[in-house]
């Protein structure tokens, strides 16, 4: 069969592109950068696959994550996509809940959007430190059950957890609002110095050292009027 286009055999061609292809490719490019940034953070911060929850370590990891993501052009969908990738584990060989949560928090805090909504209820794993240092003006809505240290170091933002949280929720928070629609674990609000925590469900225990702020359970103030140590 004659190819009537033979004269253009050597002509450099470009494939037909529909806008969706371009968008998908751009998304993939961004996701590659984000994953690469995460792997770099893990490599720097996690020695022998052990990551100790220490104040300095957390700060260092957060600063490093913030620095890495500065040049990324991402949006909320990319953050949610990263959570799915971390959960699936296909392109990411290991999930370490602490650094991954800090990395996601850095992405949320640095995102262009003021309101960030992450649907995490289908995930098999949980991330720690989500909402870490959420700044003023940002609202983070997290759907699904969450790990430990949710809203830790909250810095004026509003975090709505539509599900239950693990231990140490709101630990060290300085300002802002943490709303938990279901239950909270132990040591909630430890080292908290400001802001408010609202829990609609049960609280297993609040922190021993709470320096300021308020904690409500079902609209009832339980700190500073804290009377019992266990619910």
């Amino acid at each position: 069969m004659i190819n009537p286009f033979e004269d253009f055999k050597e002509y450099p061609y470009k494939k037909k592109e529909i806008p969706l292809d371009r968008i998908v490719r751009a998304k993939e490019r961004v996701m590659d950068q984000i994953i690469e940034g995460y792997l770099k953070l893990v490599e720097e911060e996690v020695k022998e696959l052990v990551w100790l929850v220490e104040h300095n370590r957390i700060l260092k990891a957060y600063s490093s994550a913030l620095q890495t993501i500065q040049k990324f052009d991402y949006d909320v969908d990319d953050i949610e996509e990263l959570c799915l990738e971390l959960d699936k584990g296909g392109r990411i060989p290991y999930l370490i809940s602490g650094p991954s949560g800090i990395y996601i928090s850095a992405l949320c805090n640095n995102a262009k959007e003021q309101e960030i909504h992450l649907r995490l209820y289908e995930l098999k794993r949980t991330f720690h430190f989500l909402g870490y240092r959420l700044p003023e003006g940002k609202t983070l809505i997290l759907e699904g059950d969450l790990g430990d240290f949710i809203g830790a170091g909250l810095s004026g933002g509003k975090l709505i957890a539509k599900g239950s949280t693990g231990n140490w929720a709101g630990a060290g928070m300085m300002d802002g609002e943490l709303c938990i629609t279901e239950h909270a674990g132990q040591n909630m609000g430890e080292w908290m110095s400001g802001g408010e925590i609202h829990v609609d469900g049960q609280i297993r225990g609040i922190g021993k050292t709470i320096r300021g702020g308020r904690i409500y359970q079902r609209d009832k103030l339980i700190f500073p009027n804290y009377l019992t140590s266990r619910y």
């Binding site: 069969m1 190819n3 286009f5 004269d7 253009f8 055999k9 002509y11 061609y13 494939k15 037909k16």
Partner: peptide
């Protein structure tokens, strides 16, 4: 020219969509 080049590749067995 790109449409003609893509057409060559398509007829040569590459599964490309014609340029419109």
């Amino acid at each position: 020219k790109n449409a003609l080049a893509v057409a060559y590749q398509t007829l040569s067995g590459k599964g490309l969509e014609p340029i419109e």
